[in-house]
Design a protein around this nucleic acid. Structure first.
Lengths: 224, 224
DNA sequence: TTCGGCCGTCAAGAACGCGTCAAAGGTGAT
DNA sequence: ATCACCTTTGACGCGTTCTTGACGGCCGAA
């Protein structure tokens, strides 16, 4: 979850920002003045800062410089002042964007998206472990004792449905629908065929599966 | 020297921007419409793009998406339209900043500084090694045993998408979308054609690729 | 015990996808 | 206008994958 620090001394604005950001999936922390802001930033290490200039205790540039001393998180400045000199000073102090009040909340969110997009995409892919086998769904990669294992497209789809419902029983009907399409209801022989292939490739002992289990008459289950 | 591409169909504005940017030490290229802009961008590989919306030949979002297909350079949008919807559309299409005309030249320069500041020092050596071949995505340069290898624009785009997802499988659909545009879904023959060309130019044994791999029925993968 | 349903396995032809070659459009440069 | 280069298309052989059918084993029900 992307963490945003909102710094504003006006409670209504801080509250409005918090609600809107939270509604769009951000984790929001708020601070009401510069000192709080710097302390909160050190504590939560935000991915982005929305900073209102005109705080009661510090000058805006001071806050920006305080943050920039150790953080590279984008800083989006809010301000009632529209004068170019103010904007230039804030941007050159280290801010990434400058929005004048009153502002459109949709535009602000778009600017937040633009700012997080740049620094956002860190490459970490979630891997699932199945005994001696690791499955990386994002990279579409399966390794068995370090060796690469190749799966066919149909095998991938079937495995993905099961892995996305860990521990849960998935009915044959649902598996058929999600892999072969809504017109396939009774072709359980397909499932038998491909489950056998998956077990051969993934299970230590394909005849005695430990993770890809059959629930007779119901469906299949992936046990982590 | 930081290279800036200025795209504007109004000669006065383009000229004013060129002069001001050049006076502050930037290397400036200009383009008067969308098609020229994309061609110029492919030729000079700018570090930043200043883009006027409302070009005569293309929609602004198209130009942004055309650039974003292969470039991560910051895009600073200029526009006469102050409506929030316009701003949101441009920012979500991939722009980094949005300034409404008339604008203060000092503020624009500050925003240019802010945009280049983050992408400047942060960009680590983007040289990728593929066996006997080195690829420099930023400089658009490929060397094979020291010899320079020429790639066509389409080959670059395709290679770049793959290299930016090292180890990850990229579906043929995504490749087609990012290289040819969202209307291309089923033209997998394009991929076959260009992957073959890339392998001829980059792989030691094009018939037995080691780094540019095919995942039958799914897509392609770059293995470092 | 016998029977029927369900599952795992095997084996085949059909269908599909990929690499490759060749050639026709397009576009900018000379 | 000609030329060179790049892109777009079409077609073919081949290997892999999918589909389909059949058989035997296991288990619960009659």
């Amino acid at each position: 979850m992307i963490k945003v620090l909102v710094v504003d001394d006006e409670p209504q604005i801080a509250r409005a920002l918090r609600i809107n950001l939270a509604a769009h999936g951000y984790e929001v922390t708020t601070a009401a003045d510069g000192a709080q802001a710097l302390r909160a930033a050190a504590a939560v290490v935000p991915d982005l800062v929305v900073l209102d200039l005109g705080l009661p205790d510090m000058d805006g540039s001071e806050v920006i410089e305080g943050l920039r001393g150790w953080s590279k998180a984008p800083i989006l400045v809010l301000s009632g002042r529209a004068a170019s000199a103010e904007k230039i000073a804030a941007l050159d102090a280290g801010a990434d964007d400058y929005v004048t009040k009153p502002f459109d909340i949709g535009e602000l969110l778009a600017r937040v998206r633009a700012a997080t997009r740049r620094s956002g995409p860190g490459s970490d892919s979630p891997v699932t472990a199945i005994g001696p086998v690791t499955v990386d769904l994002a990279a579409r990669e399966v390794r068995r004792d370090g060796e690469e294992v190749r799966l066919t497209p149909t095998e991938w789809q079937l495995l993905e449905v099961l892995l996305r419902n860990p521990g849960k029983l998935v009915s044959q009907r649902e598996l058929l629908h999600r892999v072969w399409g809504p017109n396939y209801d009774r072709e359980t022989n397909y499932l038998r065929q491909y489950m056998a292939q998956l077990r051969r490739k993934l299970e230590a002992d394909p005849a005695r599966p430990v993770h890809l289990l059959t629930e007779p008459g119901m469906g299949y289950r992936f046990r982590p």
